[in-house]
């Protein structure tokens, strides 16, 4: 038990410090890298709770995909010159601090005054059931593909629609003419590029389109 407490203390301290660093450091890249540290230590806490599956998914999704995309965008935008300015959202801070304090107080109050709540929050899968099923991944799969099959499928269709929607919206209509060179030449020679513009508001700024 003591080794678990030592591990938890380490994980929580580093995660908290890195979390503070994420919002306090000036360089956006350092901020994103601090977020990676947070993600790793939260994954460590999942391991401590005996859920290796969740830990792996946490690292794959958050550290491996989301933060990498943040960094990717930052590198493309070159945010380095904004590092010296400190942006403080003055209006938000007056709302954010009380809400944070309130949330923290709420969690602390529940943890201290009502220990029976955390006792009853074991759910349908106490550790021995998970062991019988063969591990946390199996336990998760059992629930996901029986009781929650429909919500799971609906969520996956929603995500697919969002992904395809983003691709369709981000698609540049000019790119199609680039893909087929003969069309492009014909276009450039025949209609001086005005035919592929949507009529109305965009026609005032032809320079941005060509």
């Amino acid at each position: 038990m003591t080794d678990q407490i030592v591990a938890f203390t380490y994980l929580s301290i580093v995660a908290s410090v890195a979390g503070l660093a994420t919002i306090l450091v000036r360089s956006p890249v350092h901020s994103a890298l601090s977020l990676v540290v947070v993600v790793f230590h939260v994954a460590g806490m999942f391991v401590l709770l005996g859920n290796g599956f969740l830990a792996a998914v946490q690292v794959i999704v958050y550290a491996g995909a989301i933060v990498v995309l943040f960094l990717f965008t930052m590198m493309l935008l070159d945010l380095r010159r904004h590092e010296t300015e400190r942006t403080v959202h003055r209006r938000q801070i007056w709302l954010a601090i009380p809400i944070a304090v309130l949330l923290f107080a709420e969690v602390a109050w529940i943890a201290i005054s009502k220990p029976e709540i955390s006792e009853n929050l074991k759910g349908a899968f106490p550790p021995q059931t998970i062991d019988e099923l063969g591990g946390s991944a199996q336990a998760l799969a059992t629930v996901m593909f029986t009781d929650y099959l429909l919500p799971f499928e609906v969520a996956s269709v929603l995500l697919l629609a969002a992904a395809i929607g983003a691709m369709v919206l981000a698609r540049n209509p000019d790119e199609e003419s680039l893909a087929s060179p003969p069309d492009m030449i014909e276009d450039a020679a025949g209609t001086d590029g005005s035919s592929d513009q949507p009529e109305g508001e965009l026609s005032e700024t032809p320079a941005t389109h060509g």
């Binding site: 990676v36 290796g52 599956f53 830990a55 792996a56 998914v57 690292v59 794959i60 550290a63 491996g64 995909a65 990498v68 960094l71 990717f72 590198m75 063969g134 591990g135 946390s136 991944a137």
Partner: peptide
């Protein structure tokens, strides 16, 4: 590990931070 494959895929996704 009973999630060994996921563990390796997770480490593979972390390795991208080196080049970045």
């Amino acid at each position: 590990l009973n999630v060994a494959i996921l563990y390796i895929l997770a480490l593979g996704s972390v390795a991208v931070y080196g080049p970045v």
